[in-house]
Amino acid sequence: MQIPHEVTARPDTGLYNAKLGIWLFLASEVMLFGGLFSAYIFLRMGAEDGYWPHGLLNVPVGAGNTAILIASSVTVVLAWASLKMRKFSQYKLWMGISILCGALFLIVKLAYEWPQKFEHFGAFIKKDAIEHYEKYLGNHHLKEKGLPPRVEISGHLHEVEIAADPAEKEKLEVFLKQHDLEAKPDEHDAKLQIVCSEKKDKDGKREGIRPGVAEDLEKVPGVKLIAFELGLDPINAAPDNPESDKPHFLYKGPTETPGKIERKDVEFYSSFAPKHSSYFAVYFTITGLHGLHVLAGVLIMLYFWLPIEGGANMFKRNPEHLANRVEVVGLFWHFVDLVWIFVFPIFYLL
């Protein structure tokens, strides 16, 4: 049984089935991402002053990824054109490049951009305590300039100070051992100062404690967090510096300038994970869903590139059918590219 118009177009519609199918699918995808982008707009409009961060993402890296995706959109068209001209080796080359571009995009995302966020610490200060942290926040300076205030202190979490109930000491010790943390007792018996040493570089220098571990530490029975000590982000290290008023084009990581925040003054803290704020929630959801689309595109293109049935081997048997398949995945790939063209400015630039 053969479904009509699988390869050749139906005369009155001018389309073969899969081409119509992919356009319909893309229409629904527009609505899917449209829903997410409208959530972005809704949340951003509703965010209180200071709760929508700027300049946390690395613009050159994002711009590079944008260029990679656009380039791959061009090469996928060239791959399709090569098939139409029945030039198989050219097809293999252009399709191969498209696949590599897609893979490179994912590697940058997964190996560099995303993991960095989970190491970064941020704490929102309670409204009544904001004055105490003026030296990190610089709100007087911002007010003079008519800029929205800052409410968050962020950076690299170096140490966590805790008070531990001696009766529950064993559970704490188990936790510390599990997470390879070093505990430095304070003078007072009841108080333990934990200095993290999760990772050490070659010189034995401590790299800090991951915010997620600090959250888990707080859940250990008998443990009470007292304060966070961190290497501040440039914006909090020199809050009055006019250079910090606007996000930098080149991303600058945390400095070594020390800062200390009392736990009691903190409204909410975490790494730059999805739960950190509306910004990261929508950032991870959209880039995550987009990443899944990129992954799907790469896998499908790989399927059409590999010498297998239904893939590149189809060239000998029915080159037109293979060209159609590449055209359809190409349309999908352009859409994925287009979504990123919206993602890049709204998260990296605006």
């Binding site: 995808e29 999805p274 509306s278 929630a281 869903l289």
Partner: peptide
């Protein structure tokens, strides 16, 4: 699809603590 987007967001809220 917008409900699918909303469903994903509610899943994020419930499973990953977003708001």
């Amino acid at each position: 699809p917008p409900l699918e987007a909303a469903g994903v967001m509610q899943l994020m809220d419930r499973a990953f603590g977003t708001s």
